[in-house]
Simulated assay, not measured.
Amino acid sequence: MSYLIKPDNYKPILDLKQTELGIKQIKDFFQINLSSELRLRRVTAPLFVLKGLGINDDLNGIERPVSFPIKDLGDVKAEVVQSLAKWKRITLAEYNIDPGYGIYTDMNAIRSDEELGNLHSLYVDQWDWERVIIEEERNVDFLIQVVKKIYAAMVRTEYMVYESYPQIKPYLPEELHFIHSEELRALYPDLTPKERENAISHKYGAVFIIGIGGLLSDGTKHDGRAPDYDDYSTIGLNNLPGLNGDLLLWDRVLGRAVEFSSMGIRVNKEVLLKQLKEAGAEDKLELYFHKRLIEGSLPLCIGGGIGQSRLCMFYLRKAHIGEIQASIWPKEMRDDCKQHNINLI
């Protein structure tokens, strides 16, 4: 079911022409800074992969990938990628990338099960990145170090936007606040996970929540994760499990927390076996990706995705992701947006 936030007295700061120019400036500037901060080289990514290899991501495990038959392959099915976490790890191995270096790419996807709204579209575009690490870097201190580098690029980009469009005032805090999902639950025990995200993001402006996908002390999860890419069971912050997390910013236009990046240290063989068993998904061990990980032909790595349209939406102070990208929206939403000065492309 679609849902629309309609900010009071909303009026876009930039017109359509300025917006299109701003989008290009942001994308060009941010990816250069991201690649410099993390020592990443750009590679070309697929739009679709063959079904049944275990390369496509399951996200939360319930989203249905868009699939289609390939005539010249005897109607073998292909799937539009949902994200590229597993594909990137295979690519690191094929390019023989050294530890301390990595790759990034433009990931374009179709997620037909998205609940459409201000932040969610059928079309997903993000920078997917992955970097080779060594065993000694599989710890929460290294995770935090990498997250800080990404956030530094985000702050730098906001200032670039301000220099180009002085009417858009920067408000990101200099420091990013880190907290574990279990600590967040203890801080706001009577709130839902999304309400906790709003509360902590409103307080600090920019937050990284560690430990996404594992069980909390009350038997719930802060949010879901597929068990075969992020490591959410290894001990992380303050002796609490999780070497992954989500980066959230407080969006003043929408008056809520917005997730801009999901990332983490990836599973090794031992953690893969553990998390698949806990999830009751050990059948995946017969798939191509999982066999390669078990046999040791894939490197240890850290990686994630950063939403391109969301980032542009935030920097340009837009109320709807449809002001940044062209997609399909319910007629009722288009009509409602038009009445509230939200100009969907």
Results as ranks from 00 to 15, higher is better:
I294M: 11
E295M: 12
E295D: 12
E295A: 07
G296R: 10
G296V: 04
G296L: 11
G296M: 11
G296Y: 11
G296A: 07
G296C: 04
S297G: 01
S297H: 08
S297Y: 09
S297C: 11
L298A: 00
P299R: 04
P299D: 08
L300Q: 10
L300R: 10
G303A: 08
G303W: 10
G303H: 08
G303F: 12
G304E: 01
G304Q: 07
G305V: 04
G305R: 10
I306D: 05
I306F: 15
Q308W: 09
Q308V: 13
Q308N: 12
Q308A: 13
S309K: 01
S309H: 11
R310G: 03
R310C: 03
L311I: 11
L311E: 06
C312Q: 14
C312R: 08
C312F: 07
C312V: 13
M313D: 03
M313C: 07
M313V: 04
F314S: 11
F314G: 06
Y315A: 05
L316Q: 05
R317V: 03
R317T: 01
R317F: 11
R317S: 09
R317P: 02
R317H: 14
K318F: 14
K318Y: 13
A319H: 02
A319P: 00
A319I: 04
A319V: 03
A319M: 07
H320T: 00
H320Y: 07
H320K: 02
I321L: 14
I321S: 03
I321E: 03
G322P: 02
E323L: 14
E323R: 10
I324F: 04
I324N: 04
I324W: 11
I324K: 12
I324A: 02
Q325K: 15
Q325D: 04
A326L: 14
A326K: 15
A326Q: 13
S327F: 13
S327K: 11
I328Y: 13
